[in-house]
Design a protein around this nucleic acid. Structure first.
Lengths: 322, 322
DNA sequence: CCAGCATATACTTGCTGTGAGTATAAGGGA
DNA sequence: TCCCTTATACTCACAGCAAGTATATGCTGG
């Protein structure tokens, strides 16, 4: 909008152009030893964040600054997640809105020592129902399913009851539906609405069921993490972003384990190798490692040229069915 | 962030928590007579927009308000596109940042008469190279290709030259690569960087090539439209959002023409019908229309139940190869 | 009334992607 | 030396889908 935009400008004069505070929030991901981790500060319940200020050249550089300052970690790949205006966060003294812009960032744990105030947590501590690498975790069928049935039955309207249960069925793959790992956000919204996580607390009373065991986070940070996991799980299937999480040199099995950690489910090894190779995403270094035990594994590195080429075709990942 | 977030709060005190103005910008889409349209105000060069204000309950409701006020059109489906902080838009008098949150919205033209200040423009007026429904448009090979070659050759570094040309090749499908309709944003960025659109104007001088014939827009609005087109073209393939653009009752061919309008390419009719039917996205009304000429076409309506079901599987659309 | 046209609707074919299983190679340790 | 583990290679089978072809049905113009 510049001076040409006369039309809307006049309309706007009718409304006070309110000022707003803008917060930048980062969901920073790394994978170590087949465990997907989120970078936290505080009591392992807070994402790095800070206000967007005049000295920041751009939104992204502001985010990088806050994360480095609070955790000592430099960020590699950054992607915007979502912008939201918190209804509940209107400043007490002045009437003022706060807007949060959340980001997904990928890095590697070893990148830096890290300040003492920060730490890496397996993201499955916050979402124990999301890790299906060893089959469906017990909490899904033993805890979530009965509580969600209770929750669905908790409304009088029959149609609403059916709709609630259908949502749960789809999201969690009940009744022999298959598990869809990308529905992380829908699942979190369900357990939140059902009052099964601490964050849903304000409305809690004695009639609500006990919480599902899981780590909670401050404000809506856990929701941001759920959004980020969903985005990442979707993205690894069509863009070669996994390599942002890998060391410069790696074996194909390490690569596979990393993808499995993110997706929360296992991958058929021969198919995974075929796909990676036929897409020419990696190239051999010529070296091999015996650290893995068994036959020495060839070492590979990412072909950065693939970044440009793969814009089109996309990276596909074969996820096992059952 | 609430009072629990003590860690970051202290750090923040070091920086003045600057205030920011927030703008909401809408890319509103409708399809009429097989022509995909964007809602504009001003000289058909401005998207509806307005500041986020205290009286708005949420970002989305603020956006709805501005669009209705400026154009008289109510919005249906709304989806956030991207949030950016304009470097070039720091207030002259006071040091102040402006942040823009852009949205994609779907509606139908007939929905309202519309105020006189607004109008619908075919989006291919702004992106003539994007419509491949009658084959590759002449502008691609006759104008864009030679100018992009010039642009690529315009750098001395051989590697940079190769990289520029590779980007162009991938984005526009030169050299027998196939056209990928989802790369709308990459293509716009290329023609912008190459100085072929008016918006790239500030740095223009006599040495730059003449513009590619196309309508321009105010500020970065055309870039927002490109982002929205890309998002929409991608989304129609896995979510049944097309129906937001359809009248309550329609024929399968009308549905196909709408998708073709958005995608900018033709669809194999038998395959399209099979896909729509097997996914049970629509149901027959029992009526038929003879207005299409030829054998009367059955009328269908969208099965809203599919909205819930299709969260999983996604909607697939068969786009023709060549 | 009939020919021709335009649209709708149905069926068939062949390729490709990919899920899944099996077999072989190579090194280390008991 | 045997066995274990991991890496690497090959094969099969099914599903999805692009693409082509054929038939049905109603309108229109000569």
């Amino acid at each position: 909008m510049d001076d040409q935009a006369i039309g809307p400008r006049k309309d706007r004069a009718a409304v006070k152009a309110d000022e707003v505070k803008v917060d930048l929030i980062a969901f920073v991901v790394a994978v170590n030893d087949s465990e997907p981790c989120v970078l936290t500060i505080g009591q392992a319940d807070t994402l790095p964040s800070g206000p967007f200020a005049l000295e920041h050249r751009s939104l992204q550089s502001g985010l990088r600054g806050w994360v480095e300052q609070q955790t000592g970690h430099p960020l590699g790949y950054i992607e915007q997640l979502y912008t939201f205006a918190d209804r509940d966060r209107i400043g007490a003294e002045r009437q003022q809105r706060v807007i949060s812009i959340s980001y997904l960032a990928l890095t590697r744990k070893e990148q830096a020592a890290g300040s003492p105030k920060c730490g890496w947590q397996s993201w499955y501590e916050y979402f124990p129902w999301e890790d299906h690498r060893s089959g469906t975790p017990p909490v899904v069928l033993d805890v979530l399913r009965p509580r969600l049935i209770e929750w669905a039955d908790g409304v009088s309207d029959a149609a609403a009851r059916r709709e609630r249960w259908q949502r749960a069925t789809i999201a969690f793959g009940f009744d022999d539906r298959l598990w869809n790992e990308e529905l992380t956000l829908q699942r979190y919204e369900l357990v939140y609405e059902a009052g099964l996580v601490q964050e849903a607390g304000s409305g809690r009373d004695a009639t609500l069921p006990p919480l599902v065991p899981s780590k909670s986070m401050v404000a809506d940070h856990r929701r941001i993490v759920a959004t980020g996991i969903a985005r990442l799980r979707s993205k690894i299937k069509y863009r070669p972003v996994v390599f942002e999480l890998m060391p410069p040199v790696f074996t194909l099995l390490q690569l596979q384990r990393t993808v499995e950690a993110l997706a929360g489910r296992l991958i058929h090894k021969p198919n995974f190798r075929r796909l990676i190779e036929q897409q020419e995403l990696v190239e051999e270094t010529g070296e091999a490692t015996t650290e893995t035990g068994g036959r020495p594994a060839k070492l590979y590195r990412f072909r950065h040229a693939a970044l440009d080429e793969r814009v089109i075709a996309g990276t596909k990942l074969p996820l096992a069915r059952g």
